[in-house]
Amino acid sequence: MNKTFFKKYFISGPYLFWMIAFTIIPICLVIYYGLTDKSGTFTLQNIMSITTPEHFKALWLSLLLSLASTVICLLLAYPLAMILKGLSVNKNSFIVFIFILPMWMNFLLRTLAWQTILEKNGVLNTLLEILHLPSLNIINTPYAIIFGMVYNFLPFMVLPIYNVLIKIDDNVIHAAKDLGANSVQTFFKIIFPLSIPGVISGITMVFIPSLTTFVISNLLGGGKIYLIGNIIEQEFTTAYNWHLGSGLSMVLMVFILLNMILTFKFDKGEGGAVL
């Protein structure tokens, strides 16, 4: 008994160390900063400051944009994952490979490239001009940010859904068909319910980074669109108010926790699908 106890903790040791050093302690620091002011006395003001119009607006906009990009990602990713499932093993791994390929390049560089493409005199508008089509002005608008989010986070939606779909036993689908279900019924009664863990995990993996991003909004929003991530970043860098930054981060954590709770609720017993 004692031996298994030791073994269990020995094996989890590196992970425990990692988690304590790089997750627990930093979170404690954030909570400490968030609940104190510059003189170190306890205050709730940093957290309450989310109600000021400029913070609240940024939070609202962040929620809206990340929700929009999550929905778009889902709408794009699910059919793609279904197509991938239908392909032969060699073909689909090739397409998955193609999907992951852009991730070999730095995320900042790719976003910067989109800036050059979408600019007023950028690649896209030059092309449109050559084709005598009206020019598109989406750089520095919320649309450009949604676009950037979808572009950057789409693989994180495709992969978990694809992983779940590929694991669904074909026999289950055959059984449904044998019992007289048409393909629409099979999809809604069998495939979709079985793929929910992947969908949930995909949603989490797109929604959370979208909600907290400040780089995408900075690069594609021309600094005109302030998301909550930008405000927090500014508090930590330019304004040098770590207390306020931490307080706002704690508010953001609430939304992330809500998302996680939902994930766990939907995902009971199917933990394997969550990446």
Partner: peptide, 21 residues
């Protein structure tokens, strides 16, 4: 002034002005 501004930038002013942006 905000609605009139194309973007708030630091070092990019240079490249954008050169590129007739």
């Amino acid at each position: 002034q905000r609605p009139l501004v194309q973007g708030y930038v630091v070092d990019q002013v240079r490249d954008k002005m050169i590129g007739n942006e």
